[in-house]
């Protein structure tokens, strides 16, 4: 049997099922985004692009977009920082290293909703963090983690806690293949620690860092359950991101068409970003391979 025939034999059945299940909902929601729907009187009416126009002009959607962008930047930057630092640390030799490597995966296995639950109890006025400081200094005023100014950063830290282990372990794996001689050479050449990181370490971990960045950006832009558990989008609309706005429009206000239109805005943003990353990474890889 020719190789390509065998390949199609393996690929086509699975992809057909996948497409069959995915295609209908996707087309349906695109159709839905061109409808004005009022479920209370079962009113369905084709209104073309008006949902998209309305979403574009809606200050609430604009606010939610700003929240999504701000949140995504926080999580991406924090997660990459934690992942790189954690990986560099795990790559050192010290007592207890094996234990840390083995347990690093734990936060990731608990998922974002669990991170929301855990950090909710850490952040409360009488939660662990505030209680810990009050036990040391009883005059301390509890930090309001879930307040207008801090809420996004607080949730981003929780999200970072959950997502960073993945990057940490990928980067750690990449670090382990760097020949130690390279570091020795760099040292005898008189390179500083920063210079060694930039010229020896970084070329090896650049690709895993970039791919981790793609993953995290996508996850952060789609954040919902962690916000649901930690703040419900509040206080006010301080942590109301696009996905939460879609949820509110669709399942609270029953504006099905409008919710669908906003979600296609979000899908477009995520696809553009991941395609950009994808092209960037594969082009770089090709030039490196040459």
């Amino acid at each position: 049997m020719p190789e390509s025939t065998f390949a199609y034999l393996l690929v086509v059945p699975v992809l057909t099922c996948l497409v069959a299940v995915m295609l209908y909902p996707t087309l349906y929601s695109i159709w839905l985004s061109t409808q004005t729907v009022d479920l209370s009187i079962n009113y369905w009416h084709w209104t073309g692009a008006s949902n998209y126009v309305q979403a574009w002009l809606d200050p609430q959607v604009r606010g939610a977009t700003v929240v999504t962008v701000e949140y995504t930047v926080y999580v991406t930057v924090l997660a990459i920082a934690v992942a790189v630092c954690g990986a560099l640390l795990l790559n050192q030799r010290f007592k207890g290293n094996g234990f840390l490597v083995a347990t690093a995966i734990l936060p990731w296995s608990l998922s974002t909703y669990a991170a929301g639950v855990l950090f909710r109890y850490l952040y409360l006025p009488g939660g662990f963090l505030n209680s810990f400081v009050i036990h040391i200094d009883s005059s301390f005023t509890p930090i309001p983690f879930i307040s207008h100014n801090l809420v996004l950063l607080s949730i981003a830290v929780a999200h970072t806690w959950q997502v960073a282990p993945l990057g940490m372990l990928f980067i750690y794996a990449a670090l382990q293949v760097i020949p130690e001689d390279l570091y020795r050479l760099a040292k005898t050449d008189g390179m500083t620690a920063i210079g060694r990181f930039a010229h020896v370490t970084w070329p090896y971990i650049r690709l895993p860092v970039a791919i981790f960045a793609v993953l995290v950006t996508g996850e952060a832009a789609k954040a919902f359950d962690i916000i649901f558990f930690m703040s419900g989008g509040g206080p006010g609309t301080a942590s109301l991101d696009l996905v939460y706005e879609i949820y509110r429009q669709t399942f609270v206000n029953y504006q099905l068409g409008y919710g669908a239109a906003i979600s296609y805005g979000l899908v477009a943003i995520v696809i553009v970003i991941s395609t950009a990353y994808f092209i960037l990474i594969s082009r770089r890889r090709r030039t490196e391979a040459l």
């Binding site: 909902p25 929601s29 099905l256 979600s263 995520v270 696809i271």
Partner: peptide
């Protein structure tokens, strides 16, 4: 296959 991951679950919930 990778692109299907771009969908936030919320976007396809109603049709599903």
């Amino acid at each position: 296959v990778v692109t299907t991951r771009a969908y936030p679950p919320i976007a396809v919930l109603i049709p599903f």
